Deep mutational scan, measured.
Amino acid sequence: MATDAALRRLLRLHRTEIAVAVDSAFPLLHALADHDVVPEDKFQETLHLKEKEGCPQAFHALLSWLLTQDSTAILDFWRVLFKDYNLERYGRLQPILDSFPKDVDLSQPRKGRKPPAVPKALVPPPRLPTKRKASEEARAAAPAALTPRGTASPGSQLKAKPPKKPESSAEQQRLPLGNGIQTMSASVQRAVAMSSGDVPGARGAVEGILIQQVFESGGSKKCIQVGGEFYTPSKFEDSGSGKNKARSSSGPKPLVRAKGAQGAAPGGGEARLGQQGSVPAPLALPSDPQLHQKNEDECAVCRDGGELICCDGCPRAFHLACLSPPLREIPSGTWRCSSCLQATVQEVQPRAEEPRPQEPPVETPLPPGLRSAGEEVRGPPGEPLAGMDTTLVYKHLPAPPSAAPLPGLDSSALHPLLCVGPEGQQNLAPGARCGVCGDGTDVLRCTHCAAAFHWRCHFPAGTSRPGTGLRCRSCSGDVTPAPVEGVLAPSPARLAPGPAKDDTASHEPALH
């Protein structure tokens, strides 16, 4: 009773807030009518008042009428009001819900409408889902798969039609296919003929059939049928067999079959498995989609049935006599038709004709302190090069084509190399640097090759510096006499390219 009084008091307290929050009759008014909170006449009256005075006034009048009803109607109103779709449509209802007392429970059932309790003993237990329907569909599909699609060729003596089998029958139906081979029951999904010589313990000319048996419980189990008994694959494991010639990621696949039913060829011909030897223990289905393919039931050349050999690369099948050149017997292992072999060759040939990528240039590290003349020119003028003790990398590039010797140069053309002071002394051009340390401070000019250098860098042994005729380390061993002091540049003949010694390969005349 306390809860009923509290709900009535809360409705009177929030009546105006609810009326202002509800700006549309749908969905709240319609939901109240659906849950029998508002009768039909009051529903029509509220809609009429909404058209006349507006939605807030109409709902305020409806809530005032609701306060005169019993506690069950008020409880049902609060339940409908706080439904998710009403809270989404009328956003101003959320503060009312947040301020609702926590001790007021809106989930209690309506009085007088409590459903009768059902004894637990009368409640049926839930049924577990079964796979009976899938099993029945598999039974119905198996006879259809064994139905012949056409008439065999005159040369083929193997013609068999499976008798119709009602689904209610649980007995196995067997077809006489000759040579002791028996087909599987209607619940078998796949059958492959297997030679009895590969099964340990088999006697006589009995041949087993590799099947997948579907049981009534819905589970499946792969086994071997020899005669009327089934054997699990673990009985046929043979770890010492060295003649297993397995197909790549293979499961067994029928390579020879008669049109209309699988079996042995007439005249004692023995149908073979995809792999010879003992049956392997793992009978998992292969991951290669080509091995799941269903080959055609007629020859791809003459479009006739009979004894066919199936290609492992495509769905086509052929007569042995229709092949070019014809085959006398079934080859062992994987067999592919000429079209598949030709496609494989065409895929391999473009790969062989692809040009080989060019090898990157060989990189040879230079000892610290040495650099090529090109690196000396590329440096920024007026700045010493940083990191001189790091190992430089010199790339061996292809030799350029031989060019004509340089033409003779006048001494005026070499004027930018040297600057003559007032006393006739050779001065260095701006930006000249030593080729060893890279520093341009207090550098000297070689009178023979006009290269800038430090005496301490080229002659670290402490050799005394002569007063005139300074030469760098590369030119100090040259027998050519030094030019007379005061000459602007060496003779043009000295600039012609010539053979250089091994220790002077990195010091070429550089223009500054």
Rank of each mutant, 00 (worst) to 15 (best):
R9N: 14
G180I: 03
M184L: 04
G201S: 07
K221G: 09
P56Q: 07
H30Q: 00
D23W: 00
Q108C: 05
R272C: 14
V256T: 07
F82L: 02
E171C: 15
V188K: 07
A261C: 11
D41Y: 15
Q225V: 01
V206G: 05
N244F: 11
Q157W: 02
F82K: 00
E51R: 03
S217R: 09
D238M: 08
E88R: 15
D34P: 07
F236L: 06
L75V: 14
L106N: 03
R149Y: 03
L158F: 13
S153E: 12
K102L: 06
L122V: 08
P252I: 09
K133T: 03
T130R: 03
L75R: 05
K102M: 05
V188Y: 15
R15V: 02
D70N: 10
Q182K: 15
N179P: 15
V206M: 04
G228S: 05
L28R: 03
S169N: 12
R92T: 01
T183I: 03
G251E: 14
K161N: 08
N244D: 11
F26W: 13
A73R: 13
A5H: 05
A138F: 12
H30R: 03
A58D: 02
L13P: 03
P162R: 03
G267L: 09
A58I: 00
P252Q: 08
L122R: 07
R113P: 05
N244H: 04
I74G: 04
K164W: 14
T183R: 09
E136F: 05
V214L: 04
V104D: 00
R139P: 02
R272V: 08
E17A: 07
F100V: 01
F77S: 01
L11W: 03
A186E: 06
M184P: 05
T147S: 07
L81W: 02
F215P: 06
A25H: 00
L10M: 04
P115T: 05
R92E: 00
Q225A: 10
V188I: 10
R247G: 05
Q172W: 15
F77E: 04
F230H: 04
G178V: 13
G218K: 08
Q57G: 00
R139T: 06
G219E: 06
P254T: 06
G263I: 00
R8E: 00
I74C: 03
A193W: 00
T68W: 00
A264S: 12
L273W: 14
S248Q: 03
K102T: 13
P143S: 09
E270D: 14
G204Q: 08
R15P: 00
V192N: 03
S153R: 05
S234P: 13
E270P: 15
D84P: 06
V22I: 15
T232I: 09
N86M: 14
D98E: 02
S24W: 01
P119S: 07
P56Y: 01
E167Q: 08
L63A: 02
E136N: 05
E88A: 12
F77K: 03
S99I: 07
P119C: 10
C55H: 02
L177Q: 06
P119G: 06
Q172I: 15
F59P: 02
H30C: 04
S249Q: 09
G112C: 09
S135Q: 12
F100W: 15
P200M: 15
A191G: 09
A145E: 02
H60E: 00
A31T: 00
G155R: 10
L49R: 10
S195K: 08
S241K: 03
D4S: 02
G218W: 00
Y85R: 00
S169F: 15
K222D: 07
A6C: 07
L97Y: 15
S169D: 13
G150I: 11
Q108E: 15
L10T: 02
K42V: 07
H14Y: 08
K131I: 01
V188E: 05
P252N: 14
P252R: 05
F230Y: 04
P116R: 04
S24Y: 04
P233A: 11
E40D: 04
S239K: 01
V123T: 08
A21I: 01
R12K: 15
A73G: 00
V104R: 04
F43C: 02
S250T: 06
Q44V: 06
L106W: 06
S169K: 15
A160R: 10
R127T: 03
K114C: 11
S250D: 04
P254E: 07
W65G: 03
F59C: 00
A170E: 06
Q225M: 01
D41H: 00
A152L: 12
K83M: 00
A170K: 15
G197Q: 04
V256Y: 14
H30Y: 13
V226I: 08
I181P: 00
D36M: 00
Q57T: 03
E17C: 00
A261W: 14
G91V: 07
P143D: 10
A193F: 03
L97S: 01
Q44Y: 02
S99P: 15
Y90S: 01
S217E: 07
L62F: 00
I74R: 01
G268C: 13
N179H: 15
V192D: 05
H60M: 04
A138K: 08
K133N: 01
G208H: 01
D76V: 07
